[in-house]
Computed example of a mutant assay.
Amino acid sequence: MDVTPVIPAGRQVIERYGEGRFKVTGQVWEGSILVRPTRTLSLAAKDFAGLDIDGLKPIFEADPEPLEILLIGCGPRMAMIPPTLRAAVKAMGPAIDAMDTGAASRTYNVLMSEGRRVAAALIAVT
């Protein structure tokens, strides 16, 4: 029995991460990234401490569909989202959840394959 999820054409799938880069739907991205099912963008933050609402705004503008869930890939380890960042994201609508970058990448792929309105801000892991 094949249990591989069917991914609609044109969707952004995170295929690999590590060594300071990501491979998303066949394209290699250097550094941290923002991913939505329809688009991938570079993220200026080089580490979790550098992540702020201004850096996340492009993910809200990348697709007209409102976000349901924003996953934060904190790097090699999970970290707590600062209350000010959590409040700023919540004011824009989606739930926000933090985990290490590997877990966030896998969770994004599962939620995206289910058709959820998900995005991920992923800090590159070296």
Rank of each mutant, 00 (worst) to 15 (best):
M1V: 13
P5C: 08
V6C: 02
P8N: 10
P8L: 12
R11Y: 12
R11T: 14
Q12V: 01
R16V: 01
G18L: 05
G18D: 04
E19C: 05
R21Q: 15
F22Q: 01
V28C: 04
V28A: 12
I33V: 15
R36D: 00
P37V: 07
T40Y: 03
L41M: 15
A45V: 01
A45E: 02
K46E: 14
D47S: 15
D47W: 03
G50Y: 01
L51N: 07
I53W: 04
D54K: 13
L56H: 06
L56G: 08
F60C: 00
F60M: 01
E61Q: 15
E65H: 12
P66A: 11
L67K: 03
E68M: 05
I69R: 13
L70Y: 10
L71P: 04
G73W: 00
P76H: 14
R77P: 00
R77N: 13
R77H: 15
M78I: 13
A79C: 10
M80I: 14
P82G: 07
T84W: 05
K90D: 04
K90M: 09
A91Q: 14
G93H: 05
I96K: 11
I96Y: 07
D100R: 05
A104G: 13
S105C: 15
Y108H: 09
N109G: 06
N109P: 11
N109C: 07
V110Q: 03
L111A: 05
S113Q: 02
S113E: 03
R116P: 09
A119L: 08
A119N: 08
L122Y: 02
A124Y: 04
V125E: 06
V125I: 15
